[in-house]
Design a protein around this nucleic acid. Structure first.
Length: 218
DNA sequence: ACCCAGGGTCATA
DNA sequence: TATGACCATGGG
């Protein structure tokens, strides 16, 4: 068992199954993936609740919306003007592609390429959507992942998204969607619950994955 | 008052 | 290719 695998098993025994992504529908996952860009999930939930109350959490309804009426509903999740436009750009693409029934039969690599062509969808958002809405075997890299694994000495902090993703996908023997799903969720759980509240890392299940006090790491 | 969050785009060098 | 500015709210 290599270090990538042992870190997973330590996280899993510490926190247990996370059952991601928290959402009622695949479309809600995609909307959430855009709204959570550089934003705390609690604030995303408020924006999603606003959309749900306005009956706007489906593609057909969103398509008949403007950025002007969308922005106020997205306010709690921050960057509301930007995200209103990103959401519209995504929904226009999504409907033009024939929505889920058509998209689900496209090969993963091709689907990823098309997602990345949408303005406002970058590598992490695309991979969130691929893994959690389409159940594709891609490993999602986020800021927590890069920080934790560079602190543990496995990668440089400057390692690019694609290189880091390839690194994870290569080091996991069990090439399994459920594993990739759980691993990313556990990393986020660990990042939220431990690395912030216990900066000395003294009770951290990963041993010094947190910054030493007083030491900066850009 | 400060730092950061489940990023991405665009302009500059 | 690689930084920097910008987007903006809410919690700790």
């Amino acid at each position: 068992m290599n270090s990538y695998e042992s870190i997973f098993s330590r996280l899993f025994s510490e926190y247990g199954p996370q059952s991601w992504w928290p959402a009622d529908t695949a479309f809600e996952i995609m909307v959430g993936a855009i709204l959570t860009q550089n934003t705390a999930w609690l604030n995303v939930e408020r924006a999603l609740a606003n959309l749900k109350s306005a009956q706007l959490l489906c593609a057909e309804a969103l398509l008949n919306t403007t950025a002007e009426e969308l922005a106020p509903l997205l306010k709690p999740s921050g960057y509301f003007n930007v995200k209103a436009q990103r959401l519209l750009a995504f929904v226009e693409w999504y409907c033009a592609e024939g929505q889920y029934p058509t998209l689900k039969s496209i090969k993963t690599l091709e689907l990823r390429k098309r997602l990345l062509s949408v303005k406002g969808v970058g590598p992490e958002t695309a991979d969130d959507i691929l893994l959690y809405a389409f159940n594709r075997k891609v490993f999602v890299i986020d800021a927590y992942t890069r920080r934790i694994f560079s602190r543990l000495g496995h990668v440089e902090i400057t390692t690019s998204y694609e290189v880091l993703r390839a690194c994870f996908e290569r080091h996991l023997a069990k090439q399994d969607v459920a594993l990739f799903n759980e691993y990313h969720a556990l990393i986020v759980k660990h990042g939220k619950d431990v690395c912030k509240t216990r900066p000395d890392c003294s009770c951290c299940c990963l041993d010094s994955c947190c910054p030493k006090q007083g030491v900066k790491e850009n």
